[in-house]
Design a binder for these strands. Structure first.
Lengths: 320, 320
DNA sequence: CTGAAAGCGCTTACAG
DNA sequence: CTGAAAGCGCTTACAG
């Protein structure tokens, strides 16, 4: 038994012949070591749990893929739990995961606003991804909404646009606030303000985007760029502008915040976007969790840069 | 030890007082049973593996959510593996899952075309979801593409449309073939044929939908309905028709096959669709797997009905 | 270099 | 009704 174990794990000192005999016997018998027994002994499961809180998975799925990318390729398995924002379900999953002796837990939030910690005195490391924990001592990995918005508006400014509107989601969201803040900062650095009638708050829909486009053009006919709070709004604004006889990008440039990769597929003009890199958020969250499992301390709240993806809708206008 | 175990598991016969003392002690000590040890003894892990093959998860993610819905609420955990259609990665995950003594494996395919079985003589039950196995003896759960298409065209016919076009994806796909077959069947039952210039094959994009709309209207100006092979094509056709001065649905009705829930969000007219119920495909696949784990035999290939979702784009035309 | 012994944390017959 | 014993399948010191 012991000799076979050593041969299979490459441990200890064995005569090459012995090792070879063990390996060929294992091969012949179709032997597959029982990870349950092995992990019982090691005292950990080489498994992590991912608890997703958003219903449709629009945000937590890309995070999941990033987590799996980092962990699954190695020896660590990822148990997926669909918490659906329901504390009862989350509690059920927590008990199940802790009973399975997971090495750690990743909580992929449902909103952009911070959420309460998933438990007190959880005996394994926890990392919050996409949605931060309200406890600043917890390790959280989130996109830099403000920086992403700042970069988007800088990009518009650097391509010569001066009259820039901002159409976004509900004002209660922290992310909406941060994106507006980043946009205004970039404008004010150039001595500019957001185009009349000011920041347009609405819901996260194409329909709102279309509606806002007409509000914007009526209030400010000289508008030459719009920064949108998400992808759906951007699509709506694109179509609305076109219906109003404005051409994108020659007449009005357009850029949106990216929650999902549909910006490139827009039938009329592929829309530039600020990619939140949720895949990377998942990857980094997994790395932080691995670090914590190996005993490194908590990192607190970490903001990951967004990535500017320039497409046709902010291409250089023809009069430059 | 034995008494405590019985109290915690509600097994055997215990005096109520003893049970209560055990439970309160467990509570006080924060005792959480070690599932690794328990499962080692039981000989199974109460875990299943889900191997996803499609890159972006457009199809396998809804399946995953359905699987998790059925299994996660119970005592069975779901390990998510992102195979990415790479046989090497799939092999890695298979070894890992079998070593962990999963009770079964679900393979959520990347394409609509059948795929080769994931292994020979896999020692646990395997169920294929969304993409069938090429081996008819394997258990596979897939949407009924043909029936869904048939129902879509029946719906158009029953609301009075007679000149119906079909714009779809690449002709090599089995699903494209099946959807066209279902559509033609519904038409021929009424003595009709697909509108000129016949089935329009292209790629799965909005751009192709726009282009096809103009081909269709030029070849057949009296067109009064279009059945589209997927959601993106449907969006493109909707916009293309509008640009050609046709109104949806009064002039031309529109319905698409649903891969993703974006049909309802279309800014101009919410588009009717054939929902493939991938969530249900996942749920049923999980149920079949549970059945197989409990010793029920294989089910072979199972087609799940699609669901017609009537929205504005096929609303009754105003002249009815 | 090899193999017998102990033990990871449980559960299940089986004596008392 | 309760508890001592054996064992699930491994790995790790420790004798030989």
């Amino acid at each position: 038994m012991a000799t076979a174990s050593k041969a299979l794990n490459g441990a200890g000192t064995l005569r090459p012949g012995t090792r070879a005999r063990v390996l060929s016997a294992a091969e012949e018998l179709g032997f597959v070591p029982n990870a349950l027994a092995r992990n019982l002994l090691r005292g950990r499961s080489f498994t992590v749990g991912l608890i997703a809180s958003d219903i449709v998975g629009r945000f937590s799925i890309p995070v999941l893929l990033g987590v799996e990318d980092t962990l699954g390729a190695g020896q660590i398995a990822v148990i997926f739990c669909d918490g659906r924002g329901d504390p009862i379900r989350e509690g059920h999953y927590m008990r199940s995961l802790l009973s399975r002796r997971v090495d750690g837990i990743i909580v992929a939030g449902g909103q952009t606003d911070p959420r309460p910690p998933i438990g007190t005195a959880v005996p394994v490391p926890v990392v919050y991804a996409w949605t931060a924990s309200t406890d600043p001592k917890d390790t959280s990995v989130v996109p830099d909404h403000e920086g992403g918005a700042y970069g988007a508006v800088r990009h518009l400014l650097m391509t010569g646009r001066r009259t820039i509107g901002h159409v976004t989601g509900p004002s209660q969201f922290r992310s909406v606030e941060l994106r507006a803040k980043g946009a205004l900062k970039a404008l004010s650095e150039e001595g500019l303000e957001v185009a009349l009638p000011g920041v347009l708050y609405g819901d996260w829909s194409e329909a709102w985007g279309r509606q806002a486009a007409s509000v914007l053009v009526r209030a400010c006919p000289e508008i030459d760029a719009v920064f949108c709070g998400n992808d759906e709004i951007a699509r709506g604004v694109a179509d609305g502008l076109r219906d109003l006889g404005r051409t994108v990008p020659d007449d009005v440039a357009l850029i949106g915040f990216d929650n999902w990769e549909i910006m490139a597929s827009h039938a009329r003009v592929p829309i530039s976007s600020v990619d939140m890199n949720l895949h990377e958020v998942g990857r980094v969250a997994a790395q932080r969790l691995l670090g914590a499992i190996e005993g490194q301390g908590a990192h607190g709240l970490e903001h990951l840069p967004c990535q500017l993806v320039v497409r046709q809708s902010t291409g250089l206008a023809s009069h430059f």
